[in-house]
Design a binder for these strands. Structure first.
Lengths: 259, 259
DNA sequence: GAAAGATATCCCGCTATTTGGGATATAGTC
DNA sequence: GACTATATCCCAAATAGCGGGATATCTTTC
């Protein structure tokens, strides 16, 4: 677990928010006692934090003294779904991709030093997978991630490299800054990324960047399919379709920006 | 807008969280300046709050000095979707309802003095409506709400009545506590609620409660259709199907509880 | 329906923490 | 690579949160 770094001065604020980080798929329900222990604070303070979060709707009391993440989160996610320009601009496009390629499509965006899936459209045949909205993915594996990485703004990229030099080398993206930039430059020139079995074994993935006017990435669109699935889809065809989809979304975003 | 009541002692904590309440469908993007003004606090403090929320991922920096709700919310919503017992227990059931009735189905739960939609399954013909996951609905209008209200635990109901006496009377649920209880008792006996055009004009709605062992509501399932849509579905049929669905979900929850 | 057992809130002096105004550093723009 | 706007840092003062214990509220049990 990554501890949220409270820069200075507002330790209690960050500490309170840290409670939200405790909840996971494996441990979705926390007792007050467990929260208090995890916080390493006095009973009073812990209860106060819990109460505040509860009043804000970010925590939900289930049975006696047990909490889960709260309903306000569900509400706020809807608020985002209704207003996120990226998501709105992709309406219909993902569906179109699925129709054309026959495999599941994904919409992603950068989040910290990772990539977050914000939209998806599953192919009819496709099994329930782990690529739903809200899924976090590593920044250095998989086509949707790599293609975003390649189109990150200058300084963002530099900051990422400083923090993740080791991971970047491990992912085979270059052992020096210039090698790293060269690898990404190649991808940038192609305008798409293709990976095989990086994030999930045996899974093909093709992705293209959604770009601003300044040619930096707002996100990416991609399709993925298992190597054991029907292979009659030419990779080139997928590349074209994905690039087309990305372009459509990019242009819609520019329009929305203008209005 | 309902101001979150900070009980005591932790005003700054609540104030920070209040920033999240600023964002709405109508105003999804806020400038730092506007946030600072809304907070009525010093520049330093406001920036600190924003920074803390930003570090927690609850705020997202878009362009220079402008924020939207952050990606962590999307992640946490997934975390809830993957673990919420109510939602998990309803998997397949909503789809079954839609197949049987031919109209859109809804899964709801109580939240503060309102009802929150947490799941939906739209009928193929059904238009994009406003009943998605995350939508808040009044507690005193519409079948899904009323049926939850009728099965609220004793003290919850009393508290609600104290706060919302006026609204309750306006909704025709009774002008005294005993009349209110009588109205709800009727509904409780029936085991379902039927409303016509309460929340949305011209919309029929049938709902049944999802109950615990103690016969208090964890939520409700319902179906809704426009009066102008195909009317060949007998209301009685819908009632039976909805009650059946609610029963199935209730039983699944008990099983899950036990294991 | 009333009592026992938990769970959460309140009280209030103390002191650590946040506060806030201005200077400074960073990021984004041209 | 220089400029403007945005965000962070610095530090003294004091406010507002902290914590230990008592109390109130809710839940369960008989």
């Amino acid at each position: 677990m990554v501890t949220v770094t409270a820069t200075q001065g507002n330790a209690s604020l960050a500490k309170m928010l840290h409670i939200l980080e405790l909840f996971s798929e494996a441990e979705p329900v926390w007792s007050t006692a467990a929260i208090l222990e995890a916080l390493e604070t006095s009973r009073s303070t812990g209860y106060r934090y819990i109460k505040t979060l509860h009043e804000a709707g970010l925590l939900n009391a289930v049975r006696n003294g047990y909490y889960t993440l709260g309903p306000r989160i569900i509400e706020m996610d809807l608020q985002i779904r209704l207003t996120d320009p990226l998501l709105l601009a992709s309406h219909g496009v993902l569906e179109g991709l699925v129709d054309r390629i026959g495999h599941s499509a994904l919409l992603c965006t950068a989040f910290r030093d990772a990539v977050l899936c914000v939209g998806e459209c599953r192919a009819p045949s496709s099994p329930e997978n782990r690529f739903s909205r809200g899924q976090r993915r590593p920044l250095f594996q998989g086509a949707v991630s790599k293609v975003i990485l390649a189109h990150l703004p200058h300084h963002r990229l530099k900051a990422v490299y400083a923090r993740q030099r080791e991971e970047i080398e491990k992912a085979g993206l270059g052992s020096t800054w210039s090698a790293f930039r060269a690898t990404l430059g190649e991808m940038k020139k192609d305008g798409y990324a293709l990976t095989v079995g990086e994030f999930n074994p045996g899974v093909y993935s093709v992705a293209a960047p959604i770009l601003t006017d300044q040619k930096t990435a707002l996100g990416s669109v991609g399709v993925a399919w298992d190597e054991n699935e029907r292979r009659d889809v030419a990779v080139e065809h997928a590349v074209l379709a994905v690039k087309q989809a990305a372009k459509t979304i990019s242009e819609r975003l520019k329009e929305a920006q203008g209005s």
